[in-house]
């Protein structure tokens, strides 16, 4: 899908983020347009999930700006933030379904909280969303009775209950069998196109992601090291991308966390 020359829905500029002194993100630039499905890839602990939290406003950037639909996430008060979040959906790593509610009530939750729809209309809406993820038959089940893939799909139905403009996925493929993985992948693509929304997906599943997304960012060590369309990525000569896409154990991905040379540390201790 081609870039349209309109204002980006999500725009990150020179974003830095640190937990205490440990810098997680340093100078991230990222843009997502409406209708796009973007994947953020990278190894474990590279700051991908932090990136999503920043876009969702659950964390605030230490420096730089995070803009969603023209609003600076760092400047918003609670009310404005909540108003914006009503137009976002997020799928958490393991679904995060409310364990004390049935599948139906889970999907109905955002509707009940934010709208005053009559019960019959609410019911129709929920069943439609469940139909969209293929779990209409499971509306009376409790989350504990669902398999991992089914739970993920219910969570997806819940995330799109309010027809969001932006959907975020935190590791949507983690822990799924190949069939569920394909199903969830196709759902993500279809829902994005049907809703005309933008989607951001954080993942390290290369094969599935490259087959559905429009654009990919590679994150390593808090920086974006590569980006491009899936075809560009597959063709890429970049060492890091090559290592990641082809799952090679050795390459430019650093094995060690950033630290002073070990000799220096030991000497330093001894010297004092």
């Amino acid at each position: 899908m081609a870039h349209r020359e309109e204002k980006a829905l999500v725009d990150l500029r020179q974003v830095h983020f640190a937990y205490g002194k440990r810098e997680i993100l340093s100078g991230i630039d990222l843009t997502v347009h409406r209708g796009q499905l973007v994947a953020i890839m990278g190894g474990s602990g590279c700051g991908k999930t932090t990136l999503l939290r920043l876009i969702g406003g659950q964390l605030k950037a230490s420096a730089g700006s995070v803009t969603v639909d023209g609003q600076d996430m760092g400047q918003l008060g609670t009310e404005a933030l909540y108003a914006l979040r009503r137009r976002m959906g997020m799928l958490f790593q393991f679904g995060a379904l409310f364990t004390d509610m049935s599948v139906f009530e889970n999907v109905a939750f955002p509707l009940r909280e934010h709208t005053d729809l009559p019960e019959s209309m609410l019911r129709d809406l929920v069943l439609m969303k469940l139909q969209a993820v293929g779990l209409l038959g499971g509306h009376a089940l409790m989350p504990s009775e669902l398999s991992g893939g089914m739970a993920r799909r219910v969570a997806l139905a819940r995330a799109i209950a309010l027809d969001p403009m932006l959907i975020m996925y935190d590791e949507p493929f983690a822990g799924l069998d190949p069939i569920s993985l394909g199903v969830v992948g196709q759902l993500i693509r279809r829902l994005n196109d049907a809703l005309g929304a933008a989607s951001i997906m954080v993942t390290h599943d290369v094969v599935e992601s490259l087959s559905i997304v429009d654009y990919v960012y590679f994150v390593s060590d808090g920086r974006i090291v590569a980006k491009g369309t899936p075809d560009e990525i597959r063709e890429s000569k970049d060492e890091f991308v090559h290592q990641f896409v082809h799952a090679e154990p050795d390459g430019p991905v650093p094995f060690h966390m950033k630290a002073a040379p070990i000799g220096e540390l030991l000497m330093g201790e001894g010297g004092q």
Partner: peptide, 19 residues
């Protein structure tokens, strides 16, 4: 109950749903 909801990210999910 609340601890479990926190562990399974239900509280964060709720927060992201503007609740």
């Amino acid at each position: 109950e609340i601890g479990l909801m926190k562990t399974t990210e239900q509280l964060k999910a709720m927060d992201m749903m503007a609740v």
